[in-house]
Amino acid sequence: MKILVCISHVPDTTTKIKFDGNKLDENGVQFIIGPYDDYALARAVEIQGEKGATVTVLNVGTASTEPTIRKALAIGADDAIRVDAEPTDAMFVAQQIVAVAKAENYDMILMGRESSDFNGGLVHGLVGEMMGWPSIAPCMKLELNGDSATMAREIEGGKEYLEVGLPFVAGVQEPIAEWKIPNMRGIMMARKKPLKVIPPVEVEGVTEYQSFTLPEGKSECKIIDPDNIGELVNLLKNEAKVL
Protein backbone atom coordinates (compact mmCIF):
# COMPACT_ATOMS: atom_id res chain seq x y z
CA MET A 1 0.00 0.00 0.00
CA LYS A 2 1.28 3.45 -0.94
CA ILE A 3 -0.02 6.63 0.64
CA LEU A 4 0.73 10.16 -0.51
CA VAL A 5 0.28 12.84 2.16
CA CYS A 6 0.19 16.47 1.00
CA ILE A 7 1.35 18.99 3.56
CA SER A 8 1.32 22.76 3.51
CA HIS A 9 3.81 24.97 5.34
CA VAL A 10 1.86 27.64 7.19
CA PRO A 11 2.24 30.20 10.00
CA ASP A 12 1.80 28.77 13.49
CA THR A 13 -1.82 29.11 14.62
CA THR A 14 -0.92 31.71 17.27
CA THR A 15 0.63 34.05 14.67
CA LYS A 16 -0.64 37.60 14.54
CA ILE A 17 -0.99 38.11 10.80
CA LYS A 18 0.62 41.25 9.36
CA PHE A 19 1.46 42.17 5.80
CA ASP A 20 4.49 43.73 4.25
CA GLY A 21 3.03 45.34 1.16
CA ASN A 22 1.57 42.54 -0.85
CA LYS A 23 2.81 39.59 1.12
CA LEU A 24 2.83 38.12 4.57
CA ASP A 25 5.31 39.75 6.91
CA GLU A 26 7.31 36.66 7.90
CA ASN A 27 9.28 38.49 10.54
CA GLY A 28 9.27 36.34 13.67
CA VAL A 29 6.71 33.95 12.22
CA GLN A 30 7.09 30.26 13.11
CA PHE A 31 6.05 27.86 10.39
CA ILE A 32 4.35 24.54 10.99
CA ILE A 33 2.74 21.67 9.11
CA GLY A 34 -0.84 22.77 8.37
CA PRO A 35 -2.94 21.65 11.39
CA TYR A 36 -5.33 19.55 9.29
CA ASP A 37 -2.47 18.19 7.18
CA ASP A 38 -0.86 17.08 10.45
CA TYR A 39 -3.95 14.92 11.09
CA ALA A 40 -3.61 13.42 7.60
CA LEU A 41 0.02 12.59 8.31
CA ALA A 42 -0.86 11.10 11.71
CA ARG A 43 -3.52 8.82 10.22
CA ALA A 44 -1.17 7.76 7.40
CA VAL A 45 1.53 6.85 9.92
CA GLU A 46 -1.03 4.83 11.91
CA ILE A 47 -2.02 2.92 8.75
CA GLN A 48 1.68 2.37 8.04
CA GLY A 49 1.95 0.77 11.50
CA GLU A 50 -1.21 -1.32 11.13
CA LYS A 51 -0.89 -2.45 7.50
CA GLY A 52 2.72 -1.81 6.50
CA ALA A 53 2.15 1.04 4.05
CA THR A 54 4.80 3.38 2.67
CA VAL A 55 4.07 7.02 3.35
CA THR A 56 5.40 9.73 1.06
CA VAL A 57 4.95 13.40 1.99
CA LEU A 58 4.64 16.01 -0.69
CA ASN A 59 4.99 19.75 -0.37
CA VAL A 60 4.82 22.39 -3.04
CA GLY A 61 7.13 25.08 -1.78
CA THR A 62 10.48 26.83 -1.89
CA ALA A 63 13.58 25.59 -0.03
CA SER A 64 12.37 27.41 3.10
CA THR A 65 9.81 24.63 3.71
CA GLU A 66 12.43 21.91 4.21
CA PRO A 67 12.43 22.05 8.03
CA THR A 68 8.65 21.47 7.89
CA ILE A 69 9.14 18.50 5.53
CA ARG A 70 11.88 17.07 7.82
CA LYS A 71 9.45 17.29 10.70
CA ALA A 72 6.96 15.18 8.73
CA LEU A 73 9.72 12.64 8.11
CA ALA A 74 10.54 12.65 11.83
CA ILE A 75 6.88 11.94 12.59
CA GLY A 76 7.16 8.80 10.48
CA ALA A 77 6.84 9.39 6.73
CA ASP A 78 9.24 7.21 4.73
CA ASP A 79 10.30 9.71 2.11
CA ALA A 80 9.45 13.16 0.78
CA ILE A 81 9.05 15.12 -2.41
CA ARG A 82 9.28 18.87 -2.67
CA VAL A 83 8.02 20.53 -5.83
CA ASP A 84 10.28 23.52 -6.00
CA ALA A 85 7.89 26.44 -6.51
CA GLU A 86 6.00 29.17 -4.71
CA PRO A 87 2.45 27.79 -4.17
CA THR A 88 0.48 30.61 -5.76
CA ASP A 89 -3.02 29.15 -5.55
CA ALA A 90 -4.97 25.91 -5.09
CA MET A 91 -5.10 25.11 -8.80
CA PHE A 92 -1.34 25.48 -9.07
CA VAL A 93 -0.76 23.20 -6.06
CA ALA A 94 -3.29 20.63 -7.27
CA GLN A 95 -1.66 20.38 -10.72
CA GLN A 96 1.72 19.72 -9.09
CA ILE A 97 0.22 17.00 -6.89
CA VAL A 98 -1.48 15.39 -9.88
CA ALA A 99 1.78 15.38 -11.85
CA VAL A 100 3.44 13.45 -9.01
CA ALA A 101 0.48 11.14 -8.43
CA LYS A 102 0.14 10.19 -12.11
CA ALA A 103 3.75 9.00 -12.17
CA GLU A 104 3.19 6.62 -9.24
CA ASN A 105 0.48 4.22 -8.12
CA TYR A 106 -0.79 5.58 -4.84
CA ASP A 107 -3.69 3.82 -3.17
CA MET A 108 -4.83 7.01 -1.51
CA ILE A 109 -3.92 10.66 -1.26
CA LEU A 110 -4.51 12.21 2.14
CA MET A 111 -4.40 15.91 2.91
CA GLY A 112 -5.99 18.50 5.18
CA ARG A 113 -9.57 19.67 4.71
CA GLU A 114 -8.12 23.13 4.17
CA SER A 115 -4.86 24.99 4.41
CA SER A 116 -4.68 27.60 7.15
CA ASP A 117 -3.22 30.26 4.85
CA PHE A 118 -5.33 30.08 1.65
CA ASN A 119 -8.29 28.37 3.37
CA GLY A 120 -9.47 27.31 -0.07
CA GLY A 121 -10.65 23.82 0.85
CA LEU A 122 -10.06 23.12 -2.82
CA VAL A 123 -6.97 21.05 -3.40
CA HIS A 124 -8.52 17.64 -2.52
CA GLY A 125 -11.46 18.08 -4.88
CA LEU A 126 -9.28 19.46 -7.68
CA VAL A 127 -6.89 16.51 -7.36
CA GLY A 128 -9.75 14.00 -7.08
CA GLU A 129 -11.46 15.30 -10.21
CA MET A 130 -8.24 15.44 -12.22
CA MET A 131 -7.30 11.89 -11.14
CA GLY A 132 -10.85 10.66 -11.78
CA TRP A 133 -11.03 9.50 -8.15
CA PRO A 134 -13.64 10.22 -5.48
CA SER A 135 -12.73 13.05 -3.10
CA ILE A 136 -14.15 13.03 0.41
CA ALA A 137 -13.95 16.05 2.73
CA PRO A 138 -14.12 16.79 5.57
CA CYS A 139 -13.28 13.22 6.50
CA MET A 140 -13.23 12.65 10.26
CA LYS A 141 -12.81 8.85 10.36
CA LEU A 142 -11.06 6.49 7.96
CA GLU A 143 -10.89 2.70 8.39
CA LEU A 144 -9.51 0.45 5.68
CA ASN A 145 -11.03 -2.91 4.89
CA GLY A 146 -9.36 -4.57 1.93
CA ASP A 147 -9.77 -2.46 -1.17
CA SER A 148 -12.35 -0.13 0.28
CA ALA A 149 -12.61 2.27 3.18
CA THR A 150 -15.29 3.31 5.64
CA MET A 151 -15.32 7.02 6.31
CA ALA A 152 -17.27 9.46 8.40
CA ARG A 153 -17.76 12.85 6.80
CA GLU A 154 -18.93 15.90 8.73
CA ILE A 155 -22.16 17.43 7.45
CA GLU A 156 -24.35 20.19 8.92
CA GLY A 157 -25.48 19.08 12.36
CA GLY A 158 -23.88 15.64 12.27
CA LYS A 159 -22.08 13.15 10.09
CA GLU A 160 -22.62 10.70 7.29
CA TYR A 161 -20.88 7.34 6.92
CA LEU A 162 -19.53 6.43 3.51
CA GLU A 163 -18.21 3.33 1.78
CA VAL A 164 -15.45 4.34 -0.66
CA GLY A 165 -13.41 2.12 -2.97
CA LEU A 166 -9.64 2.66 -3.36
CA PRO A 167 -8.06 4.76 -4.75
CA PHE A 168 -9.44 8.02 -3.35
CA VAL A 169 -8.50 11.47 -2.11
CA ALA A 170 -9.52 12.55 1.39
CA GLY A 171 -9.30 15.99 3.00
CA VAL A 172 -9.24 15.22 6.70
CA GLN A 173 -9.87 16.81 10.09
CA GLU A 174 -9.92 15.70 13.71
CA PRO A 175 -10.80 13.32 15.34
CA ILE A 176 -9.37 11.09 12.59
CA ALA A 177 -6.16 10.60 14.61
CA GLU A 178 -4.11 12.28 17.33
CA TRP A 179 -1.35 14.67 16.28
CA LYS A 180 2.03 12.94 16.57
CA ILE A 181 5.04 14.63 18.10
CA PRO A 182 8.41 13.53 16.70
CA ASN A 183 10.73 11.78 19.16
CA MET A 184 14.54 11.92 19.24
CA ARG A 185 14.94 8.72 17.23
CA GLY A 186 12.51 9.99 14.61
CA ILE A 187 14.42 13.26 14.32
CA MET A 188 17.73 11.41 13.88
CA MET A 189 16.27 9.07 11.27
CA ALA A 190 14.59 11.92 9.38
CA ARG A 191 17.99 13.37 8.48
CA LYS A 192 18.80 10.29 6.40
CA LYS A 193 15.43 9.82 4.75
CA PRO A 194 15.24 10.72 1.04
CA LEU A 195 13.88 14.17 0.15
CA LYS A 196 13.59 14.54 -3.60
CA VAL A 197 13.33 18.03 -5.11
CA ILE A 198 11.59 18.25 -8.48
CA PRO A 199 10.73 21.16 -10.78
CA PRO A 200 7.09 22.28 -11.14
CA VAL A 201 4.91 21.60 -14.15
CA GLU A 202 3.55 24.65 -15.92
CA VAL A 203 0.04 25.80 -14.97
CA GLU A 204 -2.14 28.39 -16.65
CA GLY A 205 -4.97 30.57 -15.47
CA VAL A 206 -4.25 30.76 -11.79
CA THR A 207 -5.94 33.38 -9.63
CA GLU A 208 -3.89 36.36 -8.58
CA TYR A 209 -3.66 37.56 -4.97
CA GLN A 210 -3.49 41.31 -5.50
CA SER A 211 -3.67 42.74 -2.00
CA PHE A 212 -4.51 41.91 1.60
CA THR A 213 -6.48 43.71 4.27
CA LEU A 214 -6.97 43.11 7.99
CA PRO A 215 -10.42 42.97 9.57
CA GLU A 216 -11.59 46.18 11.21
CA GLY A 217 -10.64 46.19 14.85
CA LYS A 218 -13.40 46.15 17.46
CA SER A 219 -13.97 49.34 19.39
CA GLU A 220 -13.62 49.17 23.16
CA CYS A 221 -15.66 46.42 24.83
CA LYS A 222 -18.48 47.79 27.01
CA ILE A 223 -18.36 46.10 30.40
CA ILE A 224 -21.72 45.65 32.07
CA ASP A 225 -22.23 45.07 35.79
CA PRO A 226 -23.41 41.48 36.45
CA ASP A 227 -26.02 42.90 38.85
CA ASN A 228 -27.49 44.95 36.03
CA ILE A 229 -28.15 42.37 33.32
CA GLY A 230 -31.14 44.39 32.12
CA GLU A 231 -28.62 46.94 30.82
CA LEU A 232 -27.00 44.30 28.56
CA VAL A 233 -30.38 43.27 27.18
CA ASN A 234 -31.21 46.93 26.61
CA LEU A 235 -27.94 47.51 24.71
CA LEU A 236 -28.38 44.39 22.60
CA LYS A 237 -31.90 45.43 21.72
CA ASN A 238 -31.58 49.17 21.23
CA GLU A 239 -27.92 49.87 20.48
CA ALA A 240 -26.68 46.75 18.67
CA LYS A 241 -30.19 45.93 17.41
CA VAL A 242 -29.64 42.19 17.45
CA LEU A 243 -32.58 41.10 19.64
Binding site: P11, D117, F212
Partner: peptide, 12 residues
Protein backbone atom coordinates in the same frame (compact mmCIF):
# COMPACT_ATOMS: atom_id res chain seq x y z
CA UNK B 1 -11.24 35.34 3.88
CA UNK B 2 -7.68 34.03 4.31
CA UNK B 3 -5.38 33.12 7.21
CA UNK B 4 -8.35 31.58 8.97
CA UNK B 5 -10.39 34.71 9.40
CA UNK B 6 -7.38 36.81 10.41
CA UNK B 7 -7.24 38.63 7.06
CA UNK B 8 -8.89 39.19 3.69
CA UNK B 9 -7.41 38.97 0.22
CA UNK B 10 -8.48 40.67 -2.99
CA UNK B 11 -8.17 38.04 -5.66
CA UNK B 12 -8.31 38.60 -9.42
Amino acid sequence: GVYTGKAFANVA
